[in-house]
């Protein structure tokens, strides 16, 4: 069934034909109207009946243009974000270098600045390369320090560079003491189930020696490898006890090896006491959960 009606209205046939003829005549006449009249008719229709549709077209064009502008702004924001993130890294590095400069001023010429590179290959965990070697006065066993404290030790030296291990390596065993020199022990690294679980432990502490949480632990200078007074960490709590004669304590490391990019390496002619280098700015403010950068 068609959806239009089957009984349309109809007027007088004669009048309809006349009207139709007139309309057709007018329609044909529009072609021959002067162009100014045609334009006037067009303009009149454009600003009246067709205005909403033309306005819609303008609106959509504006929306499209705004979308393009938004995309351009998004690109600008992305670029700025990338620049800002890079800026933050540069600012951090700058701060570290400033700290190192201050440290070197206090330490004198006994430390050489160096940049740490990590090989990143399987099996190279806990090891690093520094861009100073024997020509810079570096020797095997030289401590590697950051502005906050002890990072590791040099194991092998070459002319232009050296390799070392950080405190997470099992062979890292400096002699250590409490900041007031009341107790001595040996630092060792204990591997966890995964690398983030690696712990630093001070072992060989007499059973009845009182160790309070938060006390600073420094290198003791015994053994002739590490100068006395380099910060290592702070006491966290008892790790183990053997009988009634020995205890081991967990330490909160003061230097984060993974974050260390610029360091100082002790040169061969340095002295045996470095306690004055860190005493004022690091050892005095060591506290549990503090900034261990």
């Amino acid at each position: 069934m068609p959806f239009y009606g089957s009984e349309p209205e109809s007027g007088s046939p004669g009048r309809d034909l006349t009207l139709t003829a007139f309309v057709l005549l007018f329609a044909f006449g529009t072609v021959y109207l002067p162009s100014t009249t045609q334009e006037r008719i067009s303009s009149a229709l454009q600003v009246s009946a067709l205005r909403p549709f033309i306005a819609m077209q303008g609106l959509l064009t504006d929306v499209g243009a705004r979308r393009v502008r938004v995309e351009a702004l998004q690109v600008t924001v992305d670029s700025l974000s990338a620049a800002m993130s890079t800026h933050q890294a540069v600012a951090d590095e700058n701060e570290t270098l400033r700290d190192l400069l201050e440290l070197q001023e206090r330490a004198g010429a006994t430390y050489r600045p160096a940049t740490i590179h990590r090989p990143g290959t399987p099996g190279s965990e806990s090891t690093f390369l520094v861009d100073v070697g024997t020509r810079d006065g570096i020797r095997a066993g030289a401590p590697v320090v950051s502005p906050t404290g002890l990072v590791g030790v040099i194991r092998e030296t070459r002319t232009a560079n050296s390799s070392g291990i950080d405190w997470t390596h099992p062979d890292f065993r400096p002699s250590a003491m409490l900041a007031d020199g009341s107790a001595y022990g040996l630092i060792e690294s204990r591997r966890g189930s995964f690398r983030e679980e690696d712990r630093l432990v001070i072992n060989g502490i007499p059973f009845h020696e009182p160790f309070d949480s938060g006390q600073a632990v420094l290198t003791s200078g015994l053994g002739g490898i590490f100068p006395r007074g380099i910060p290592i960490g702070t006491v966290l709590g008892v790790a183990e006890a053997e009988g009634t004669w020995r205890k081991a304590y967990y330490l909160e490391p003061i230097a984060e090896p993974a974050a260390a990019t610029h360091v100082l390496v002790l040169v061969s002619d340095s002295g045996d006491d470095a306690s004055q280098v860190w005493a004022q700015d690091t050892v005095g403010v060591i506290a549990p959960g503090g900034d261990n950068r």
């Binding site: 239009y4 009606g5 349309p8 209205e9 109809s10 007027g11 046939p13 009048r15 309809d16 034909l17 006349t18 009207l19 139709t20 309309v23 057709l24 007018f26 329609a27 529009t30 045609q38 008719i41 067009s42 229709l45 454009q46 009946a49 067709l50």
Partner: peptide
């Protein structure tokens, strides 16, 4: 088909003019 011949012609002319308004 719903209206008379004359009215249909007027409607045709009107819609045609609307189309022509956009045809330069």
């Amino acid at each position: 088909r719903e209206t008379s011949l004359g009215r249909a012609s007027v409607l045709g002319l009107t819609t045609g003019l609307l189309e022509d308004a956009m045809s330069v």
